[in-house]
Amino acid sequence: WVPDSEAPNCMNCQVKFTFTKRRHHCRACGKVFCGVCCNRKCKLQYLEKEARVCVVCYETIS
């Protein structure tokens, strides 16, 4: 899990986070992404309901 303080930009597209461009943690890899790069949901083994995942993890999992 990457702390918010260590991620000033999206770890995929590099967009800078602001008050309106929020950070989202991928529940699969723990990296920090913008809403566009972390907009998929899928079922993870260790969680009961679907969770937010990044586009890279989504392609790997599904």
Score class of each variant (00 low, 15 high):
residue 24 H to D: 01
residue 55 V to C: 12
residue 36 V to H: 11
residue 7 A to G: 10
residue 8 P to F: 15
residue 30 G to R: 04
residue 28 A to Y: 07
residue 60 T to C: 14
residue 31 K to N: 11
residue 60 T to M: 07
residue 29 C to P: 01
residue 14 Q to G: 09
residue 61 I to P: 15
residue 28 A to I: 03
residue 11 M to A: 14
residue 20 T to M: 15
residue 26 C to V: 00
residue 53 V to Q: 06
residue 32 V to I: 11
residue 40 R to L: 08
residue 45 Q to F: 08
residue 10 C to Q: 02
residue 11 M to V: 15
residue 35 G to F: 14
residue 6 E to R: 04
residue 33 F to Q: 06
residue 16 K to H: 09
residue 4 D to W: 07
residue 55 V to P: 09
residue 14 Q to A: 12
residue 55 V to I: 14
residue 20 T to A: 11
residue 22 R to T: 03
residue 10 C to V: 00
residue 57 C to S: 00
residue 42 C to I: 12
residue 9 N to Q: 10
residue 57 C to I: 00
residue 53 V to N: 05
residue 3 P to M: 09
residue 17 F to H: 02
residue 34 C to A: 02
residue 60 T to N: 13
residue 58 Y to P: 03
residue 46 Y to W: 06
residue 18 T to E: 11
residue 33 F to T: 05
residue 35 G to N: 09
residue 60 T to H: 07
residue 19 F to Q: 13
residue 3 P to K: 13
residue 9 N to P: 01
residue 26 C to T: 00
residue 31 K to A: 10
residue 58 Y to I: 10
residue 41 K to W: 15
residue 34 C to I: 01
residue 36 V to F: 14
residue 21 K to Q: 15
residue 49 K to M: 06
residue 22 R to A: 08
residue 58 Y to A: 04
residue 50 E to G: 09
residue 4 D to L: 08
residue 47 L to V: 13
residue 46 Y to P: 15
residue 38 C to W: 03
residue 42 C to N: 15
residue 61 I to W: 06
residue 39 N to E: 05
residue 26 C to N: 02
residue 40 R to W: 11
residue 17 F to L: 03
residue 19 F to D: 15
residue 5 S to C: 10
residue 3 P to S: 12
residue 26 C to L: 00
residue 38 C to T: 08
residue 22 R to N: 06
residue 29 C to E: 00
residue 27 R to N: 12
residue 4 D to H: 03
residue 2 V to L: 04
residue 32 V to A: 11
residue 59 E to R: 08
residue 40 R to A: 13
residue 12 N to V: 14
residue 59 E to K: 08
residue 48 E to I: 04
residue 55 V to K: 09
residue 10 C to M: 00
residue 25 H to D: 02
residue 11 M to Q: 10
residue 15 V to G: 12
residue 56 V to W: 12
residue 19 F to R: 14
residue 18 T to K: 11
residue 1 W to I: 15
residue 59 E to Y: 06
residue 14 Q to S: 09
residue 19 F to T: 15
residue 60 T to L: 07
residue 56 V to F: 13
residue 16 K to E: 15
residue 39 N to C: 09
residue 17 F to V: 02
residue 17 F to E: 01
residue 13 C to E: 03
residue 58 Y to K: 04
residue 13 C to L: 00
residue 39 N to G: 11
residue 14 Q to T: 12
